Simulated assay, not measured.
Amino acid sequence: MARTFIHPEGTVQPAVPLSHGVRKGNILQVAGQVAFDQQGEVVGTTVAEQTRQVLANVKRVLEAGGASFDDVVMFRAYLTDVAHFGEFNEAYAEVLGSDFPARTTVYVGLPPGLLVEIDALAVVD
C-alpha cells in the first residue's frame, strides 16, 4: 500500500524535511502544526490565538487528506509553558466543541514566538 504525502494547496512548504501529513490506507498522520498562516508568518501572540490558528492548520491538512476532526482519534499538544494550560484548553474546546479525541499534552521548547504545536492521528472510514 503506497503512502500519499499531503501538502495542502496554498500552504508554504515546510522549511524542514517533513510533509504536512502522510496517508497510508485509512490512516492519516498530521505532522505537528504551529501558528503559521499560509504565507509562513506567525499568527497571534497569545496561546488562545495560536491554538485557534494551529487547529485551523490541522484541519486544512486533514481535509487535504480526505479527513475531518471527526476522524481524529488522537491529538498531541506541545506547549511551551505549563501556565498556558488553562487558556489552551479553553481555545481547544471552543474550536472542537465536544466528544473530544484522546489527547496528550507535553511541555517543550519551540522556536521564538511559537507557543503551541499540535499533531493529529486520524482513521478515515
Rank of each mutant, 00 (worst) to 15 (best):
G21E: 07
I6L: 03
K24F: 00
V116Y: 13
V61I: 05
D99C: 03
F100S: 02
P17Y: 08
T45G: 12
G97M: 02
L114I: 15
H84Y: 11
V116G: 12
A31D: 05
N26D: 14
N26G: 08
P112E: 15
S68P: 07
G21S: 06
L96A: 02
D119K: 03
V43L: 11
S68H: 02
L96F: 00
L55K: 03
D37Y: 10
R76D: 14
T45W: 06
L121T: 14
R3N: 04
K59N: 14
Q53V: 07
T51Q: 10
L79A: 10
P112W: 04
V22T: 10
A120W: 02
T105V: 15
E49V: 08
F85E: 15
E90M: 02
P112R: 12
A35L: 10
A56C: 00
D99A: 12
A67T: 04
H84Q: 15
D71S: 04
D99R: 14
G44M: 10
Q13N: 08
F75H: 14
T104E: 15
L121V: 08
Q13Y: 08
D81P: 03
N26R: 14
P112A: 14
A15P: 07
N89R: 13
T4F: 09
Q38D: 15
L62F: 02
V58W: 05
R52D: 07
P17R: 12
S19I: 00
V54A: 11
A77D: 10
D119F: 03
A35E: 11
D125V: 10
K24G: 03
L18N: 05
G25R: 08
A15M: 13
E87C: 03
Y107Q: 07
A102M: 06
G32R: 14
V58S: 06
T51I: 09
G65R: 06
A77P: 06
V124L: 13
A102T: 02
E87Y: 04
I6D: 00
A67E: 04
N89F: 10
D37C: 10
V123I: 15
L18Q: 13
M1A: 12
L110I: 07
H7I: 00
D37I: 10
L79K: 11
M74A: 05
R103V: 08
V58C: 07
A64H: 06
G10C: 05
L110P: 08
E87P: 06
Q39V: 05
V12Y: 01
K59V: 00
K59H: 09
L96E: 01
V72P: 02
E49A: 14
V116C: 12
Q39C: 04
E117I: 01
G40H: 08
Q50M: 12
Y107L: 13
R52Q: 12
T46H: 04
H84N: 14
G109N: 13
V82P: 11
H7F: 09
V34P: 05
H20P: 00
E90Q: 13
